[in-house]
Simulated scan of single mutants.
Amino acid sequence: MIPTITAFERSPDRGQGLARDMRVRWAFEEVGQPYNVRLVSFAEMKQPAHRALQPFGQIPTYEEGDLALFETGSIVLHIAERHAGLLPDDPNGRARAITWMFAAASTVEPPILELQTLKFGEGDKPWFEARLPLVQGRIRAYLRDLAARLGDADWLDGAFSAGDLMMVHVLLRVRPSGILDEFATLSAYCDRARARPAYQRAFAAQLALATGA
């Protein structure tokens, strides 16, 4: 059975590859597995039918038979565990790759999301000017540590893994702010990942929805 994921009918990023269904599309492409996409509107995302799959009314979701999943980390891990290509065969290597997935979602991404919320939802609030440098500082601190850990390696732990997939997509979400460009090591890391054929296929699929191509 071919899995079905959900994606924005009209993505807020207008095809820049920043919506979270990109992570799942990329994972499918890396492991060479087909998938179907069901588009949902913002109104549909808040309806009971979608909330039965995603209780917080977000995308993406994953459906395969009687299995329904939400949260990109969980979905990507499920794909990686079922198909070769995103997790090492060595148990210790697998554990480290999964740790990097958690680090991306639990450590690096939260202040990036806070920055987006601050800029696009709280720009007119009295606390905006005071909070902005604090949030930016937290992001820079994590990126500085991440760049130091990556060093001159191509990927976080040996070969490309689900940990890199999650981390790169998180980093790409901060690129519009200009902060990522301050870290040449991480910028090059993201460029290497974006050059992967699997990323290019996933990006093209998401872009086609935004442009109607």
Rank of each mutant, 00 (worst) to 15 (best):
residue 191 D to W: 04
residue 152 D to I: 07
residue 67 L to P: 09
residue 72 T to W: 00
residue 90 D to A: 07
residue 43 A to G: 14
residue 25 R to F: 03
residue 147 A to N: 08
residue 69 L to K: 01
residue 174 V to M: 07
residue 205 A to V: 01
residue 54 Q to S: 13
residue 96 R to K: 13
residue 43 A to V: 15
residue 49 A to I: 09
residue 206 Q to R: 02
residue 202 A to N: 02
residue 101 M to G: 02
residue 170 V to K: 01
residue 177 S to R: 11
residue 54 Q to F: 11
residue 196 R to T: 04
residue 116 Q to G: 12
residue 183 F to Q: 10
residue 28 F to R: 01
residue 169 H to F: 12
residue 119 K to V: 14
residue 198 A to I: 06
residue 192 R to C: 08
residue 60 P to N: 05
residue 56 F to A: 14
residue 133 P to R: 09
residue 210 A to L: 02
residue 8 F to P: 00
residue 8 F to Y: 15
residue 175 R to N: 09
residue 113 L to P: 07
residue 23 R to Q: 12
residue 149 R to L: 13
residue 100 W to N: 09
residue 75 I to G: 00
residue 39 L to D: 06
residue 73 G to N: 09
residue 190 C to W: 01
residue 50 H to N: 06
residue 81 E to G: 15
residue 191 D to Q: 15
residue 171 L to T: 02
residue 132 L to C: 06
residue 168 V to N: 02
residue 149 R to Y: 11
residue 23 R to N: 08
residue 120 F to L: 13
residue 111 P to N: 06
residue 88 P to W: 02
residue 59 I to M: 12
residue 172 L to W: 04
residue 161 S to L: 08
residue 47 Q to Y: 07
residue 67 L to S: 14
residue 41 S to D: 12
residue 8 F to R: 00
residue 62 Y to D: 01
residue 70 F to D: 10
residue 41 S to N: 12
residue 143 L to F: 03
residue 107 T to Y: 05
residue 205 A to M: 06
residue 138 R to F: 08
residue 123 G to E: 11
residue 135 V to I: 15
residue 9 E to W: 04
residue 206 Q to N: 12
residue 93 G to T: 06
residue 109 E to S: 03
